[in-house]
């Protein structure tokens, strides 16, 4: 991810009336490794997908995955190190939301994270964030040694359970 312009916050193409505004929104955030800083990122991204009329299930999925991704980056990636930052990029169109979250931590190997749904791990308190991200998003990819998470959620029509 482009790390130039630290601290910049841009949101291009956010003017226009609901649902008839610009086709594509693009956000770039660089935030310190504190949870409070992630709130603003979430609010901006979630208000854009709401403005675009993403359905409730999709908004729930994005909110959950984004929350988990930011917690992972701040807590497990950067380990609250004040010298490290979290970089977030979101590209939102009427069809989908692409969100990239990258930390400056040591990275991790996805395959080494224990499956929290296995009987022997179900009472352990960690490992569920990644599981939820992968369950709720349509595409999830870890790159840069696990530091960079790229995830896509498509704005699909409501799925009626059981159909």
């Amino acid at each position: 991810m482009d790390k130039a312009g630290s601290k910049r916050r841009t949101g291009r193409g956010r003017s226009g009336s609901p649902r008839t505004g610009p086709v594509r929104s693009h956000f770039v955030f660089t935030i310190p490794s504190v949870f409070a800083a992630s709130r603003d990122v979430q609010e901006k991204i979630l208000s854009d997908i709401e403005r675009r009329g993403f359905n409730e299930q999709t908004r729930f999925a994005i909110k959950l995955a984004l929350e988990e991704a930011l917690i992972n980056a701040i807590k497990h990636g950067n380990r609250f190190d004040p010298r490290k930052e979290v970089h977030v990029e979101a590209t939102i169109t009427p069809e989908e939301a692409l969100i990239i979250v990258e930390d400056e931590g040591p990275g991790f190997d996805r395959s080494s994270v224990p499956d929290p749904t296995l009987r022997e791990n179900v009472e352990k308190c960690s490992g569920r964030g990644i599981l939820l991200i992968e369950a709720y998003m349509n595409q999830v990819q870890w790159t840069n040694g696990g530091r960079c998470l790229r995830m896509i959620k498509r704005n699909e029509p409501d799925v009626i359970p059981g159909c």
């Binding site: 988990e68 917690i71 960690s126 569920r128």
Partner: peptide, 16 residues
Amino acid sequence: DHLSSAALGMLINVNT
């Protein structure tokens, strides 16, 4: 309406 994996961890602790 919303909870995180950290909340699930807390609930698991409570259960234990």
